[in-house]
């Protein structure tokens, strides 16, 4: 299973980024290989319009099974993600990536 986190850094102990569209990094964890890789999304700050759709496009290209984030995607991003198979879990905005993963495994995060 491939899980994507919205995060402010690139490590397991980094804080989650509660924002979806304007998240600083996307961290991709593959539980089969136990690899954690990061995608730098910081240039999103330059986008005046449609940060959510741009990040959604990136997310789609990363092809994950699960997205774990804080606030949940905005309207435009939502209408894109609806068309993908990715399951979205929210409420992890004030955790570290590791805590968010534990919370997800223990079914503590609400499904969006």
């Amino acid at each position: 299973m491939r899980i994507v986190f919205t995060a402010k850094g690139t490590e397991w102990d980094s804080d989650m980024d509660p924002r979806f569209g304007r998240t600083q990094y996307l961290l991709i964890y593959d539980d089969k290989t136990d690899d954690l890789v990061s995608f730098d999304n910081r240039e999103i700050d330059k986008e005046a319009h449609g940060a959510g759709t741009k990040t959604s496009q990136r997310l789609f290209d990363l092809n994950p099974d699960v997205l774990i984030t804080g606030n949940g995607p905005g309207g435009n991003a939502q209408s894109i993600l609806e068309r993908t198979k990715v399951e979205i879990y929210t409420g992890a905005g004030e955790m570290t990536v590791r805590e968010a993963y534990e919370a997800f495994k223990n079914s503590k995060l609400p499904k969006y």
Partner: peptide, 11 residues
Amino acid sequence: NFNAIVQLGPR
């Protein structure tokens, strides 16, 4: 310039 178009695979 407005990110109003996305490409989801072949769509």
